[in-house]
Design a protein around this nucleic acid. Structure first.
Lengths: 200, 200
DNA sequence: CAGATTACTCCACAACTGTAGAATTACCTG
DNA sequence: CAGGTAATTCTACAGTTGTGGAGTAATCTG
């Protein structure tokens, strides 16, 4: 790993920090509209920049999307740390993390982008399915010592995705405005039952 | 070699039942891609018909969408009949109805159209929110004699929407291929708890 | 100073979109 | 048979989309 700052040559970026602005605008647009409906020109306008910059920095719309999906926190590490506390009370920890994380992420979470895009964009759909299966549910399933581990994990997935859609995307009331602890208290037992309870 | 019959101009002889074919094609396309991503030309091609027919029969894309959303069964009547059995075991009845209905609807349910479209199309988003609130949750909330009726109802909504997304849209395994009764057995207690159990 | 390299904008293109009107043909009523 | 109406396709238009190339400006290295 060369930590050397790389002999920067050529024209330095002005104090506009364009790349980051484009990325931020892309995240906003993708969360709001999903992959297809967020146009490059809209994103560029939002960033106060010419549309050509997207090509300059990210080559493609797909490239921009990939860059926008590079999440700040590694979800697998996050989940691993959640799991380290054991299965007892995992439902509650999982849910609290999810809700508090997304409440103040101000709608700009990669997960929301993915959910929203997955409805109309094939690649996103595949990404979401694989992300849920491998990164989230796979790990949970591995931690659960019960028959039907995979089924249990995907049931959890269904409740979590449903919560995201209802609270953050479609915004069904009063769930959308309910305070975090209320949501945690209400939904955690569901997740815990899918984890360790009887499901047959 | 003229393999294609070369579309003759003007009114063709016989009864082609075009309106119904366009409508069916529209339902298929809307379920597969959502409102925005399903183009009029694609729908017309799917129906084996010129795109002008949409205008002829439905005026607008919005008009076509409205027509495609005119559901064969009135959901409010359906829900009312489910509710008539009382709150006892309602979770199970609700879930069984939902799962069996959609499993053999072959993916062409109006609900799936709505869920899929709601992610990118503002009007659909509004429609879904209002449909869930008024038609489904409103009625359920009215039948539940407990504090937090609306919150309970929207929690149910979150689990149901999550199930739809996970099983029918994103197709997370093994939930997507699980047999109906397994799903009912696993999820019904969740719904029942949201209905009558403790949520605080 | 001369390149080289990067940052950035402008313009063009082909494809696709929803909408609109005109033209053509078939069927129905009298 | 005459005339109207419905059914259908064709052509056109203005807008938007992702992409690509060309050109300009700023800064670096040598």
């Amino acid at each position: 790993m060369t930590s050397a700052p790389a002999p920067r040559r050529g024209r330095p970026p002005g104090d506009r920090n364009t790349r980051a602005r484009v990325l931020a605008a892309a995240r906003r647009m993708f969360t709001e509209r999903g992959y297809n409906a967020a146009s490059l020109r809209d994103i560029a306008r939002e960033a106060g920049v010419d549309a050509g910059m997207v090509r300059h920095y990210f080559v493609d719309k797909a490239g921009l999307f990939r860059a926008a999906m590079d999440m700040p926190v590694d979800p697998s590490a996050l989940i691993a740390s959640l799991l380290s506390g054991g299965v007892e009370g995992l439902g509650e920890r999982l849910l609290r993390k999810l809700v508090t994380e997304w409440d103040d992420a101000g709608n700009a979470s990669a997960m929301i982008i993915l959910v929203r895009s997955a409805m109309t964009h094939d690649e996103s759909n595949r990404m979401l399915r694989e992300f849920i299966s491998r990164q989230v549910l796979g790990r949970i399933a591995a931690a659960v010592d019960a028959p039907d581990r995979e089924l249990r994990a995907s049931l959890i997935g269904s409740q979590l995705v449903g919560l995201v859609v209802a609270r953050y995307i479609v915004r069904v009331e009063p769930l959308a405005s309910a305070d975090p602890e209320t949501v945690v208290a209400a939904v955690a037992p569901t997740v815990q039952r899918y984890l360790t309870g009887s499901i047959r």
